[in-house]
Design a protein around this nucleic acid. Structure first.
Lengths: 142, 142
DNA sequence: CCCATATCGATAGCAAGCTAACTAATTATC
DNA sequence: GATAATTAGTTAGCTTGCTATCGATATGGG
């Protein structure tokens, strides 16, 4: 197996392990990998609309919609009407989502994920991943 | 944002772009990323049972079951009874799946994905991904 | 031999990604 | 000012991951 096929296999394995592991871990605080990401991203742009948040997250609005729905149901965020435009709804984190437990959890997991990875390699790893993402985005487009 | 958080974000982005791009591209031959992977993995172990193939793919049997179902429906593989054990079914690729078009397609996409990634960096990227996968697998386990 | 246990595969149900298509509301154009 | 075009959000439906559970078949211990 050529080196890049092996690397792709590993990449796909990372995805699966992330889902299995992160979701199992995040269950402690009532979240999932994706929902935690919604919260941490919204933390930097409270008051954003769903479309803005979806864009920041790099996911499609219908995908975000269900997560927002679940997060609102579970008391992590709330949607408020925006005056002047009846279509839009501004998103805000709840107290619960602001709590130290959540941010501590997210930080702990991220740290744990990269444990044992040589810091010096990170920029190169990052650059390679960026390149692969860009290549994937271009697949069958040109 | 610390470097490893940024790298995690990029990793998640790769996942999303891979789905969007690869699946769009694979649609030409009637496949998806995951289904193409089922075929290429089975190519190296024809006659395997579903449990064996699922293990080789690193996915759970119920996940594989639906893919096998779809691939059988679409004429890419067939399930044959195994004599001596009525529970098992052996999996075989069809002519269609063996066709040059499929393998050529898979190879082309894999090449395209890694275009512009420095070959010299690959071992380090691979090692880092392996480490992250292992860390993810251990999350909330210890 | 029989019952307990393990294994294979299938079913059901949940999460999260996508696209396509729709409604309601706003903005732009004539 | 009426109509056309765009935008926000939703709905519906598909794929692929997961876990939990179940039925049927093998296998092993007593």
């Amino acid at each position: 197996m050529p080196q890049h096929s092996a690397t792709l296999e590993t990449l796909l394995r990372v995805i699966r392990e992330l889902r299995r592991g992160y979701d199992r871990s995040a269950a402690d605080v009532g979240l999932t990998l994706s929902r935690a990401r919604v919260l941490t991203t919204l933390a930097g742009m409270e008051g954003a609309t769903q479309a803005e948040l979806a864009h920041a997250l790099g996911i499609e609005p219908p995908t975000l919609k269900r997560q927002v729905e679940a997060l609102e149901r579970d008391g992590f965020l709330e949607r408020r009407a925006i005056e002047g435009d009846a279509r839009k709804r501004a998103l805000f984190l709840s107290e619960k989502a602001h709590s130290a437990a959540i941010t501590r959890f997210v930080r702990a997991v991220r740290t744990e994920l990269f444990e044992g990875v040589d810091e010096a390699d990170l920029p190169r790893v990052h650059a390679a991943l960026e390149r692969i993402a860009a290549n994937a985005a271009r697949l069958n487009r040109s």
